[in-house]
Design a protein around this nucleic acid. Sequence first.
DNA 1: CAGTCGATTCACT
DNA 2: GTGAATCGACTGA
Length: 213
Amino acid sequence: MIATPDRTPLAREFFDRPVLDVAPDLLGRVLVRTTPDGPIALRITEVEAYDGENDPGSHAFRGRTARNGVMFGPPGHVYVYFTYGMWHCMNLVCGPEGLASAVLLRAGEVIEGAELARKRRISARNDKELAKGPARLATALDVDRALDGTDACSPADPPLTVLTGTSVHSDQVRNGPRTGVAGDGGVHPWRFWIADDPTVSPYRAHVPRRRRT
DNA sequence: CAGTCGATTCACT
DNA sequence: GTGAATCGACTGA
């Protein structure tokens, strides 16, 4: 277990920038999930940017709904959605309030509280897989819709916090098309990851589901 | 109000 | 590599 000495939350201004600036800048930073059983800390290794109402791949593309409302709110808050009838995924809202941009946290390295994460991720064959993929990440951190709207920059010990600290050097950042996203045809290279990191999830192009008979 | 499908994962071949 | 699991949000009639 690696210690995470400084638990100061990142300033909200960090998130109040264009999402394409924030996304790569999150790589290498640490997210802490405080649970009743103890903290779980995750070093972020893979993210994707979703750029507001003009991005066909974004949940905000067709405007504000009951589900995506948090995306339109202030930066630094957490947007959690439920998908495929069984999974949750989590985002950090970016840009000025009203712009509806966000960064999807796709993968990370559990650096503290791995014993807690393993309890939620029974099928993980090793610790690299604990948070290798967005739904796995949310599962490992016990994140669901109850945490939608959480302020990750709050000084008041919120259940989710992004810490100050340093991101990886830009020469370690790679980028490419977003994984499994319908609508954008894979044209936006808005997925960012840390080069050669073993916790980064594999790329998959979007495949329309075969129709049920 | 019924039909469609998803920012996915897992078991199985 | 393929298909199932599983349900709520969204769409269009």
